[in-house]
Amino acid sequence: MSEFEPRIVAFLCHWCTYTGADLAGTTRQQYPPSIRVIHLMCSGAVDSIYVLKALIDGADGVLIGGCHPGDCHYQTGNYKARRRLAILKGILNQMGFTEDRVLLKWISASEGKLFADTVTKMTNDLKKMGPNPMKQLWNA
């Protein structure tokens, strides 16, 4: 069996992180093809249900990308995302998911390298963690 390739679902905000991900491309930063980007207007628009569904459906990790504190284009969306995730992590633990499968990261439009590094590191971490156990349930 070939090496386990994690699948990450990423919710990126329109203004900062999505643009940062584009910059990673323009500057040819290489990172593993593990990530599937869903484009939203704001990290504050990431519903907990999206994160839960992604994990239940078998995604190995979920990345939420938003503007740095103070830079949210909608004033406070990133703070809302941060609080929401803090609560969600408790629920994830209760449900038996490792909370480390979900990562919230502030990446600005000028941080292409940081985006690439984040995906690389997250992919490696998930490799160590192993596949999302839910996947086996679906395949059973």
Binding site: A21, D22, A24, R28, Q29, P33, I35
Partner: peptide, 20 residues
């Protein structure tokens, strides 16, 4: 977005990049 967020960033992995 298969350029900035795919082809440009997975240059050496054509198979996986195509899959993505």
């Amino acid at each position: 977005n298969i350029r900035e967020q795919c082809a440009f960033v997975h240059r050496d992995l054509p198979e996986l990049a195509t899959e993505k």
